[in-house]
Simulated scan of single mutants.
Amino acid sequence: MVSLEQLPHPEYLPYPNHYTAAFFENGEEALKAIEELEDYGYSDEDFNVFEGNKGVDAIDLEGSHHTLLENYMRKFIKFSDSAEWRFLHEADQEIRNGHVLICVPTPSSKEKEEVVDAFKRYGGYDIRYFTPLYIEEVVL
């Protein structure tokens, strides 16, 4: 049995490629979803976990941990009031409130459906599917 602490806790959110993300009230719910997805063949390395202070730093709402160019991009995203900015702002608040954000690569529709179903089953909320061009809010 894997623990949440053993899973990857990256320094930054993944680049908006094809992945699905959801918030969970606590680590226990997130871990149940992860365990189910591992039964489908996902591995520990497929999950990005954002929680606590390290999660807030990885979201980096103000861009203070970014390079100069990344910092300018963060400011552009903020002032354009894009879906990405709204997600970053929500993620910052959720993690500060003790919740957990899990991101999983989902390059195919089948994988997206598997991940969304597992997230829903274990209390995942505000589920989003990211592509390089848009962010889709998954309607429950």
Rank of each mutant, 00 (worst) to 15 (best):
P14R: 02
P14S: 01
P14V: 00
P14W: 02
Y15I: 00
Y15A: 04
Y15C: 02
Y15S: 08
P16I: 00
P16D: 06
P16H: 03
P16N: 01
N17V: 09
N17S: 08
N17D: 08
H18R: 11
H18K: 06
Y19R: 05
Y19C: 06
Y19K: 00
Y19L: 02
T20R: 00
T20Q: 00
T20P: 05
T20V: 07
A21C: 05
A21T: 09
A21V: 05
A21H: 00
A22H: 04
F23K: 03
F23P: 01
F23R: 04
F23M: 09
F23E: 04
F24L: 14
F24R: 08
F24C: 09
F24Q: 02
F24S: 08
E25K: 01
E25A: 06
E25I: 10
E25R: 09
N26S: 10
N26P: 06
N26T: 08
N26A: 09
G27V: 04
G27T: 06
G27I: 06
G27Q: 08
G27R: 03
E28F: 10
E29C: 15
E29T: 09
A30R: 07
A30I: 15
L31R: 03
L31Y: 04
L31N: 03
K32H: 15
K32W: 13
K32I: 12
A33Y: 11
A33Q: 09
A33H: 12
A33K: 06
A33R: 07
A33T: 14
I34A: 04
I34V: 15
I34M: 08
I34L: 11
E35L: 15
E35F: 14
E35C: 15
E36S: 11
E36N: 06
E36A: 15
E36H: 12
E36V: 13
L37I: 05
L37E: 02
L37N: 05
E38A: 10
E38I: 06
E38R: 13
D39F: 11
Y40H: 05
Y40T: 01
Y40C: 00
Y40V: 01
G41K: 04
G41Y: 02
G41R: 04
Y42S: 02
Y42P: 06
Y42R: 10
Y42F: 15
Y42H: 10
Y42W: 13
S43I: 11
S43K: 14
D44V: 09
D44A: 12
E45C: 09
E45S: 14
E45N: 13
D46A: 12
D46T: 06
D46Q: 05
D46R: 04
D46H: 10
D46G: 09
F47P: 01
F47G: 01
